[in-house]
Design a protein around this nucleic acid. Structure first.
Lengths: 309, 309
DNA sequence: CGAGGCATTTTGTCCTGGGCAAATCTCAAT
DNA sequence: ATTGAGATTTGCCCAGGACAAAATGCCTCG
């Protein structure tokens, strides 16, 4: 049943479809309409919102800009063309970062969708540098570079997904190939809820495992209550959390404090990652590992203390 | 500031958390409360719903029964024990009363937190059965078993995390060891936003790769628009999506329809997973792979068609 | 007794318009 | 420069009503 002028056949979207498509919740879509006068969906016979293709496109672009730190009130009035221009513009005065040779080559492969070569190149870097060198000198700069490129709009979402997925495969493969001795300390690795970034966790796991510690990873997003349970069940000596820069800065300290309070005294709490919140408040009872290189000395310290006791 | 009896401190869930955990939308949760008197969340200082662990467990079980065709009004009044009995009773064609020997042993290891042995046992099953057999006869039943145990509250969240993480390592290792020939079809694998389950995707990737296809995984949660972009960039012949039972049933058909409309005709769209929504509406232009075993014949068909053209 | 068509119930999604806390911004003061 | 208080922005949640699609029950007719 097409209407008489269905020839133009504009695809129309219900509010649920727009939610799926843009990642903006129904609540947000309604509240924007009320507050900012955009979007302006027409209504169907039943009074329900019907969004046009253009508006969905603009909403999608808006969502991307929000993810990069823009605020809706500031940009929602602009035209789609302006928004696209904004997305392309480099944010503020961030100079094009200079990359070492290998990371630059790898980034180029990612941009050109050469999956097999990308994986190959990563594998070669790994063999050349060893896992520790690979993690600190290739993976960490690459993560930065991919993140930067994403902020600049130079990289599509799916390219970033592909990067994460590929790197995850390489890192996991490397970690699995390290012989496990079951030596102390027993380190429980995870992230708090809403922290989805998996690569930081894997890098840390690699460093811990390389140093001969017994690393047990729960993956991302473990509720605090369950971290405490897990630490007890696995008789963990150390609980290590990773915080990416995408994680809300304020929640870092709160989460660590709460976890610290609920963990037994004897269990140490270590935190690391690129999040700025790790360097703010002084967190008593939490060891901050600013860089991946800080993991080895921290482990050495722990072992010295354990030997003394 | 802990309350006097903070030691018991049950974890509490907001309505948004319950939505994520159970796959029941906020609207549904509120309307059930209004109509059936269940769930009965307490309210926090701000008047917002706070759900207990037990109620979330019951809601999860209810969701599972709904997926099997039960209706909420008929079963919502029963106790969790009754619901579990109902879930166990006659799941039609698949009684599966006794877990095969290996999966049972593996589940026991998980419950006892013997990580090293768990990984070892999984590795041995893999070697014994080969990857295809491992995926269909060990991983798939194990996923079920873990899901069931979780639904009944027999397994902690962190145990489920550990299972997922460990299995992910094993599967990725196995996939990486398959030689890649770059043969067609080129298959792009991912899930839609809000679908976080990674194991289904990895199992599918294993099957595709085993059959000699070129599988490119974007990991989970790729927006529809970006799937379309990725399919073009990677010149995909097939886009394959995975839907776990936690994904809102109704959105399955909608999401697939929308993606189908935006993908070029020449690109096939395949979908699989445990979600009940895959068996509901007739989805034109989408190939449903009910089981992992269905992937091989589907590939064979595609190749036959490609050869004919 | 079975099949098909129609009425009724069930169920999930969408609606409006309001409220609140957390995040962010602004700007003065140290 | 940094900090801190106040103002603003923003997303999520609430209540309770309405409606359409799906499922079920009922009734008639062959």
């Amino acid at each position: 049943m097409q209407s008489a002028q269905a020839s133009t056949e504009e695809p129309l979207y219900s509010i649920g479809a727009v939610e799926r498509d843009t990642g903006l919740t129904k609540d947000t879509l309604r509240v924007w309409e009320r507050r900012y006068g955009f979007p302006t969906p027409v209504r169907d016979a039943n009074g329900e919102r019907v969004y046009s293709r253009e508006q969905v496109a603009k909403l999608r672009t808006l969502k991307r800009l929000l993810d990069r730190g823009h605020r809706p009130g500031r940009i929602i009035g602009r035209s789609l063309a302006e928004l696209v221009a904004l997305a392309d513009a480099a944010p503020a005065a961030a100079p094009e970062p200079v990359l070492a040779e290998a990371p630059a080559r790898i980034l180029a492969l990612l941009r050109e969708h050469r999956v097999a070569e990308l994986r190959e190149e990563l594998g070669q870097s790994l063999m050349r540098q060893g896992l520790a060198g690979f993690v600190t000198e290739t993976v960490a700069p690459l993560n930065r570079a991919v993140g930067d490129a994403w902020m600049r709009g130079q990289i599509e979402v799916f390219e970033e997904h592909l990067y994460t997925e590929t790197m995850q495969g390489v890192l996991r493969g490397a970690i699995a190939s390290i012989p496990q001795h079951g030596r102390p300390p027993r380190v429980l690795l995870t992230t708090l809820p809403n922290e989805q970034h998996h690569l930081g966790l894997l890098m840390a796991q690699a460093m811990f495992t390389l140093e001969g510690a017994t690393a047990i990873s729960l993956g991302t997003q473990t509720p605090i209550f369950d971290i405490v349970l897990a630490a007890a069940s696995h008789r963990a000596d150390v609980v290590a959390l990773s915080f990416s820069s995408a994680y809300p800065t304020v929640q870092v300290a709160d989460g660590l404090e709460e976890l610290r309070a609920k963990l037994p005294r004897a269990v140490e709490l270590w935190a690391g990652g690129t999040n700025a919140g790790l360097r703010r408040r002084d967190l008593t009872g939490v060891r901050i590992c600013d860089t991946l290189e800080a993991i080895a000395p921290a482990l050495a310290e722990w072992r010295a203390a354990a030997a003394a006791a």
